[in-house]
Every structure is written in C-alpha cells, then in structure tokens.
C-alpha cells in the first residue's frame, strides 16, 4: 500500500587528517589546560556552604537551650503541667500557659479559615482569568498588603474593624449562629474574632502570592490535557491546576500559619488581652506573643520573668509542632503519588 521514503546516508568526503603531523594547540586549549583542577576552590566552597547549613541547627539548638535554662524556676515548680494550667496570677506567683496557647491557636486557625478561600480566589483569578492589563496592578496591590507595618493594621482595626464588627457583623452572627455557642455575647468588639480577621488580612498576601507562583509553574500541557477531554474552565482549574499545585498550596498555607502564630502587635491591639478560655469567638482572649509583648517590661519577680520565658518556649514548641503536623499531612496526602508535575 505504501512504501517507505528513502533514507540517505551521508558519506564522508574528506580523508581524516594525518595523525603524525604535530598540530600546534590553539590559544583556547592552552589556556584551559593551564587551569588546573580547582580542587581546593571546590573544597573551600563545600566547607563554607556546609558551615552555613550547620549554623541553622546551631541557632535553633541555642534558642531552645536559652529558653529552657532561663525558665528553670517555673519549669521546676510546675513541670510540664505549666502548659496545661489556666492560672495567671503574678502576685501569688501562680502561672500557667494554657489560655495563651489556646488564644494563639484559635486566632491563627480563625485567620486561616477566613484567609485561605480568599487567597485561593485571588490566586485563581490572577493566574487563570485576569485580563492582562489588570494582572500587574492587582498582584502589586495584593503584595502591598504585606508591606504595611502590623501596628498600622492594629490602628486600622481599632478605629475601623472593631466598630464595624461590634455594630454590624457581630449582632448578625449572634442572631444567626448564636446557637452554636461560638457567637454569644457580651459583644465588646475586642475579641478573638477581631484578631482572626486582622490576621487573615495580614497573611492573605503571603498565601495568595505563593499560591500564584505554584499555579503559574504548572505546565501548559497539563491544562491542555484536561481541556482536551472536554473540561470546562472551572474543571480545568480544579483538575489541571489546583490538583497539581496542591502541595505548593499547602506549603503556602503553612507559611501563612507560621506568620499568624507569631504575629504580635496587631493582635495585641485588638484581642482584648484577657487570659481566659471562652468558647465564644466574640469574647476577648490573649496570645503567647501578646502576653510577652505586654508584660515583659513590667515583670519584676524572677518567677514572673521565668514564666514569661517559658511562654516563649511554649510558642517555640507550638510553632514546631504545628509545622511538623502540616508536613505530616502533606506527606500523608501525597504518599504514593509523586509531587513532581511532568
């Protein structure tokens, strides 16, 4: 039926050069031969980068050591129970970290709950749907949110966000979701919810810009592969982009969470600073970072100081544990399926 096309084999026309005739080496060859093997430079470089990597371990261990040794008074008195006690009474030297740990975790997770859907929406719009002329200004504005100092966020929250929540949002939440127990009065404005909202705005740029990065790095052929199966745009984004970028997105969320856990100034200004554990998000709370910032300068007794430093240790440990859990989650989700996108 058909016949293969001819295959042409080229034949060499010039004979190979005479091997006996000595050839004078070119300037390039002489130069390159004189370069040596650079073993020493390589060795120095290797040692330097190894030192840099090692110093990370050193710093982490030093911080942990310092925190532990300086909080030995409370460690000796309360032991590990310190992390689960709810007392905070500097006059009687009775201390416990639990309300602060609770406040830090709850305000950070509230922030994630509010921020992640928004951040994903922003990232999806910017990578997949945004008209070209709008892309640069919009992503610039999102990233500008990260450049605003946190004390400015705190001021804005005190003068704008808190009145807004107190007068308009909270009454509605109490009315519609009051039965859950998470939104019950009194409605003071300074609350866990206010802290969560401020934190959400502060971590939005990190999550959305990193998510945007990983989404842009998903190869075009993956998108086309889904489209070619008859997918709509949303299906293409879900299967071809988000699914492939999910590990990077989780990474972005972890980084956002890291920032939320440690954020001090803005949270201190709006959370109400009361070391109590209340189920309602409309009640004031306290975070570990806030109590350190507020009370360090007035901590007079050795015991008081030791308690605050141990709270620093708790913050350090919580951050490590949360990050470890997040890594485990990533590992559990991706087990079996490689992270690499072809």
């Amino acid at each position: 039926m058909t016949q293969p096309a001819k295959i042409f084999v080229s034949e060499s026309s010039t004979p190979p050069p005479d091997a006996k005739q000595p050839v004078k080496p070119s300037a390039v060859r002489t130069f390159l031969r004189g370069r040596g093997n650079s073993a020493i430079a390589d060795g120095i470089f290797k040692a330097l980068v190894f030192l840099c990597a090692l110093s990370i371990f050193g710093i982490v261990i030093l911080i942990a050591w310092e925190l532990i040794s300086r909080s030995h008074l409370t460690l000796a008195k309360f032991g590990l129970g310190f992390f689960f006690r709810s007392a905070w009474d500097p006059v009687n030297n009775d201390f416990g970290a639990f309300p602060f740990i609770y406040g830090t975790l709850v305000s950070s997770f509230l922030a994630l709950l509010i921020s992640v859907p928004f951040a994903l929406g922003v990232a999806i719009f910017l990578t997949e749907m945004c008209p070209k002329w709008l892309r640069a200004p919009l992503s610039f504005l999102t990233e500008l949110l990260a450049a605003i100092p946190s004390v400015v966020y705190g001021l804005w929250a005190i003068f704008v966000l808190i009145p807004l929540l107190r007068d308009y949002v909270n009454p509605k939440l109490m009315f519609t979701l009051g039965w859950t127990g998470f939104f019950t009065g009194p409605n003071a404005g300074y609350s866990m919810l206010a802290a969560g909202v401020v934190l959400a705005i502060m971590i939005l740029p990190i999550i959305s810009s990193l998510t945007r990065e990983v989404m842009t790095s998903v190869p075009m052929v993956q998108r086309e592969g889904v489209l070619a199966l008859g997918a709509t745009r949303w299906e293409m984004i879900r299967i071809g982009v988000l699914r492939n970028a999910r590990i990077g997105i989780v990474g972005a969320i972890i980084l956002g969470l890291g920032r939320a856990l440690g954020e001090t100034m803005a949270v201190t200004m709006v959370i109400g600073n009361r070391p109590e554990i209340v189920k309602s998000f409309l009640a004031p709370g306290y975070t570990m970072a806030s109590v350190l910032a507020n009370e360090f300068s007035e901590a007079t007794g050795d015991m008081y100081l030791s308690a605050l430093i141990e709270i620093g240790l708790a913050l350090f440990l919580v951050t490590i544990v949360v990050n470890a859990c997040a890594r485990m989650l990533v590992w559990a989700v991706t087990r079996g399926a490689p992270a690499r996108v072809a």
């Binding site: 052929v221 993956q222 592969g225 399926a337």
Partner: peptide
C-alpha cells in the same frame, strides 16, 4: 499531545 502529559497526581 507531543509530550506525554499524564496527570501526575492521579
């Protein structure tokens, strides 16, 4: 397509 593009997460 020219380059194989299986969905790597599936």
């Amino acid at each position: 397509f020219q380059r194989p593009n299986p969905f790597p997460t599936m």
